[in-house]
Nucleic acid binder design. Structure first.
Lengths: 156, 156
DNA sequence: TCAAAAGATACATCAATAATGCACTTTATA
DNA sequence: TATAAAGTGCATTATTGATGTATCTTTTGA
């Protein structure tokens, strides 16, 4: 029971963009390369997440030389429940059909767990990217430093 | 993002036991074989879950001829949050360390998601096995029928 | 006292899917 | 028109949950 790294990476990317755009360079585009160097991630995976965020209209991507991407909305318009639901996929947290459960017609479990899932997302719906940028100055500092020393900063 | 089948099976087993003990045979022991026939599950997997439920003192297992297992507590004393937390494992829903995230020292995400997770379990804490046995009569009927025709009742 | 029936345990294998990698295409622009 | 960027599809690897096989231990009734 854990969010996918895919989802996690998506949130990191949004935080990075929000942080950069909060700074002296509000119109600066970020690139996949830059994100990968900052977070030490695989370019392919980030590529796919960026593309997904673009399809969701959360970021504006631009191809070609001097391309890149930036937030398409203000940070306080990007709700965490939406981002996580979309990136994570919105399947039921319990699967009564695979393998099929004979108790299904009389079972209360699925609705109880389902309600719990909704409470999780309701909680997330009270937060936006802006809340993730609370320590904006510190984040900027971190991302600046990490970007400057692309070979270091590894860990398990 | 889904509960493990392991956890799901554990809950089904408890429902089965609760249902049987609600009926004419409150002291009847169930066996792994019987559960497998009812739900069409792998004996090995069920074996492990039963063992786990025993270690948690939720059921009393007994080896040997005429062995088997039954609930060790009243259904209204078996809380769903406990069962699911234990069977599922209580790891964080987001992993900041693998791969390590540079933003960690300034990041709010983990605490927001962590709180959402706790809300999920708080919700579950308001339910017990007794709530899963709401349709007890129907469950008994289902389990009886399923047990009688062990070769049928398949589905994808 | 022994055979059979049950759970306990350890290890091996299979399957699903998330994560990652590679190659190539398309687009923008200097 | 070369280059730098994202877009796309397919292949591969890694993780881990799910399942299988074998054997051990315990209990009890014949």
């Amino acid at each position: 029971m854990q969010l996918k790294k895919y989802t996690d990476y998506g949130l990191r990317i949004l935080m990075y963009l929000g942080s950069v755009q909060n700074s002296e360079l509000p119109d600066k585009r970020a690139t996949i390369k830059e994100i990968c160097e900052t977070f030490k991630l695989s370019a392919n995976h980030v590529n796919k997440v960026v593309h997904h965020l673009g399809r969701l209209k959360l970021i504006e991507t631009r191809r070609g030389k001097h391309g890149g991407f930036l937030l398409a909305k203000a940070p306080d318009e990007i709700r965490l429940d939406y981002v996580i639901r979309e990136l994570e996929g919105d399947e039921a947290w319990i699967d009564c059909h695979n393998p099929y459960c004979v108790a299904l017609p009389a079972c209360e479990l699925n609705s109880i767990v389902g309600r719990g899932k909704e409470l999780f997302y309701e909680h997330l719906s009270r937060y936006t990217l802006k809340d993730l940028l609370k320590n904006s100055a510190q984040l900027q500092q971190i991302f600046l430093t990490a970007g400057q020393s692309p070979a270091l900063n590894r860990s398990a």
